[in-house]
Design a protein around this nucleic acid. Structure first.
Length: 469
RNA sequence: GUGGGCGUAGCUCAGCGGUAGAGCGCCGGACUGUGGCUCCGGAAGUCGCGGGUUCGAACCCCGUCGCCCACCCCA
């Protein structure tokens, strides 16, 4: 044996054991079906991109967090990189849209569920390799697009069993107008937003201090904070009622009209999104929040972020009307949203939201192998397994001549409900004994009727576990 | 990157200067054609790694690596 190596996966990555994969696939399946219902089409892109495709799209912080791939050969020693792992699914999409502009429909809508990589420091619910579930709509500036995306995301969360999520909504141009109104010029705005984004978490005093450390005098910092501190509802409020949100949104809108009257056309757009959302699955979940900033630099219009109590955010998105232009040379308007698969799973696991059916065993039936089995018996067991599989049962065959008790314990430990026992007595009678490990009962039935016998009992069990609504 | 905590059996952890422990899990037996419950027995650790102090270090000191929490940022 070689020296013991660490067997942990690299920090920020995980192995997914069978139970994990089943839960992930369940969530992905819900996401995919909802997105399909909204007319989005699937897309996949490579794990890595040319590095120039990614650089300069995410802002300064984003650039630093890109996983770079060193050049091979003579450049290996220099640390130079020409490829990089994808950082999100939006920039690769923009590249694809520019590349295949003539083959894609005018209003291209795609979903994409793939891993992305960030050279970040891992934390609770934050990984260096994680899955995003993205939807994006290209080609239209209409707020209908934004609203459909909000609705689709809401429908995913509702279908998964969430009822207390809040989607905060804001607008980049509105943020710019608000900052302008307190004397922050375009150059200092992104820095200021980073500080203001924390209003919800750290409170106004901490943000004022932060701004002062970024070179603001106290008076200007206070003005900034006051301008942004007027979100009516803390987003951490659990189970906010739709009427509370509606009232809060109305009062927020009227205050915004007072604070930045020059931004009235933007406010109209925001209002249109809010109004139309009321008739979709997003109804009662959207909260206009003037302090929402979001880190990615490519957003140009509406921005949104969805969260629930107990975790940073489940996903976010917004409108980016200039990003495709960086590849294409002419702008194509676009709006998208990204749900974080593992964030959703972290919360669902904590809240016990996965159905029992997901924890069902690895197989329905274990065919036991007699300890003194001769060749004929082994072949008979395999033939029986085939017959059971023919009725779509999941069948495992015990491979070694262990004592029967050990074989049954193996089935029991792995949550396999049925064991088929074919011994000398049964063979003589052309019969099998079928033991139900859950009900602790057993019955000897004719060999030829065994598949149907088990099939019926498995079906009955599933009806109990998953009653039709 | 900053601050705090933790690394001891497969897992969760106790021990905090005097020969390495418990619970759970694992293996075997009681139970030669029947899992779970019970009982009996067993295997298992260079106490993260390196150095120092000491008659003696899992324990104290220094360094180092790894993990966790908070900040930061985000999905």
């Amino acid at each position: 044996m070689a020296d013991k190596q660490s067997t942990k996966p690299p920090s920020g990555t995980r192995d997914f054991l069978p139970g994990d994969v089943r839960r992930r696939e369940y969530v992905i399946d819900v996401v995919r079906r909802v997105y399909e219902r909204y007319g989005f089409e699937p897309l996949e892109t490579p794990a890595f991109e040319n590095i120039d495709t990614l650089l300069g799209k995410y802002g300064e912080e984003g650039n630093k967090l890109i996983f770079k791939i060193l050049k091979r050969g003579e450049h290996e020693g220099t640390g130079e990189a020409d490829l990089a792992l994808r950082y999100d699914l939006t920039v690769p999409l923009a590249r694809v849209v520019a590349q295949y502009q003539n083959e894609l429909p005018k209003f291209f809508k795609r979903y994409q569920i793939q891993p992305v990589w960030r050279a970040d420091r891992p934390a609770r619910g934050r990984f260096r390799e994680f899955y995003q579930c993205d939807i994006d709509s290209m080609g239209s500036t209409s707020p209908i697009v934004d609203v459909e995306i909000l609705s689709a995301v809401s429908e995913v969360l509702v279908t998964l069993g969430f009822d207390d999520f809040t989607i905060r909504l804001n607008h980049r141009q509105l943020l710019a107008a608000l900052l302008e109104s307190v004397g922050v010029s375009a150059a200092g705005q992104s820095d200021t937003l980073v500080a203001l984004d924390k209003l919800d978490k750290t409170g106004p005093d901490a943000v004022i201090k932060d701004l002062e450390s970024r070179g603001f005098d106290h008076e200007k910092a206070s003005r900034c904070v006051n301008m942004f501190a007027s979100d009516a509802i803390r987003t951490t409020t659990r189970l906010p009622s739709p009427s509370v949100f509606a009232a809060a949104n109305m009062s927020q809108l009227s205050r915004l009209h007072q604070d930045v009257p020059e931004a009235s056309s933007i406010l109209d757009e925001v209002q249109a999104i809010l109004d139309m959302s009321a008739d979709t699955q997003a109804a009662g979940h959207v909260l206009l929040s003037r302090s929402l900033a979001r880190g990615l630099s490519y957003y140009t219009g509406a921005i949104m972020e969805v969260g629930v109590e107990g975790i940073g955010s489940l996903g976010g998105g917004g409108r980016y009307d200039n990003l495709i232009g960086m590849f294409l040379g002419r702008d194509v308007p676009a709006c998208g949203f990204s749900l974080g698969l593992e964030r959703i799973i972290v919360v669902m696991t904590e809240r016990n939201m996965f159905k029992d059916a997901l924890s069902l065993g690895s197989a329905d039936v274990l065919v036991t192998m007699w300890p003194d089995a001769d060749d004929a018996i082994r072949r008979d067991a395999l033939a029986l397994a085939s017959e059971l599989r023919a009725v779509d049962l999941r069948v495992d065959v015990y491979p070694e001549p262990d004592k029967l008790g050990k074989q049954l314990r193996y089935a029991s430990d792995r949550d396999v409900q049925f064991a088929v026992i074919v011994g000398g007595d049964e063979r003589a009678k052309k019969a099998v004994t079928i033991k139900d490990l859950v009900a602790s009962s057993q019955e000897t039935v004719a060999r030829e009727s065994a598949p149907q016998f088990i099939r019926e009992r498995v079906d009955a069990g599933q009806r109990t576990k998953n009653p039709e609504p």
